[in-house]
């Protein structure tokens, strides 16, 4: 996309970029709704949660924790742990959004997800910056938001009409695989993946999803270490 792309062109490009990821979120949203109802979360709250938290893995984890009768503060702590990666997305995007007003920043922060970040990543890494590229992020964020809300509502409504045996939650895992694999360019990326993966599995017994934080941190350090040895 050229640097002078219009707001509308950026917005549409964001929608297009997030479309396959949004489609992949549909089965994940459906199974979230089914599990939320099964966990005893009232239908209204289960639907509201998709807008309140707007984070697939966190919502999925909440249904598991609520079903297990986990106390509220521990649920919140686990949500913080699993969503902490968004602070790093926030940091990566911050310089490019520094010129925006508070309302824009709040809206884009609310809409920041793995999917919208992945969809707009190339637009923000590229050399052809463009003054309206935050509209790309808005398009990706809003597109995903709409599809996600509808999927979660459908899941809550259909409820037991969707058999858990279909393992639809696996679509979430597959979406992340589809995002990560194309990002494995240099040896440093492979190092980051391997160390993060091994750490996450080895530390999985840690409480409150702390393994996720430990693994992401270890993976990033491994990537940095290899990056230094591997000048490009």
């Amino acid at each position: 996309m050229s640097p002078s792309a219009t707001r509308r062109a950026e917005f549409v490009a964001g929608l297009v970029a997030v479309a396959p990821l949004a489609a992949g979120s549909v089965p994940f949203g459906l199974i979230y709704g089914v599990l939320a109802v099964k966990a005893g979360i009232p239908a209204g709250l289960a639907i509201a949660l998709a807008a309140i938290v707007f984070a697939g893995s966190a919502q999925f984890m909440i249904t598991q924790l609520v079903a297990a009768g986990t106390p509220g503060p521990l649920v919140v702590a686990s949500v913080a742990a699993i969503n902490l990666r968004h602070a790093l997305y926030s940091a990566a995007l911050a310089p490019a959004l520094a010129h925006l007003n508070g309302a824009w920043r709040a809206a884009l922060a609310y809409l920041l997800t793995d999917e919208s970040y992945a969809a707009s990543l190339a637009r923000f890494e590229g050399a052809a910056a463009g003054p309206h590229r935050h509209w790309h992020l808005l398009g990706a964020g809003l597109g995903l938001w709409l599809v996600w809300q509808l999927s979660c509502i459908a899941g809550v409504t259909l409820g037991s009409g969707i058999p858990p045996g279909w393992s639809l939650e696996f679509a979430g895992t597959l979406t992340f695989i589809a995002i990560v694999v194309p990002l494995l360019r240099a040896r440093a990326d492979w190092a980051a993946m391997t160390v993060a993966g091994v750490t996450a599995v080895a530390a999985q017994a840690l409480p409150y999803k702390l393994a996720i934080i430990a693994a992401a941190g270890a993976g990033m350090l491994a990537g940095m270490a290899f990056d230094r040895r591997d000048p490009r």
């Binding site: 990566a92 992340f176 980051a192 993060a196 393994a211 996720i212 693994a215």
Partner: peptide, 16 residues
């Protein structure tokens, strides 16, 4: 370090 965020963070969710 931020370059490695998506790979490290999402892998931490996928492998388990």
């Amino acid at each position: 370090m931020l370059r490695f965020v998506p790979v490290a963070a999402l892998t931490a969710l996928v492998w388990p």
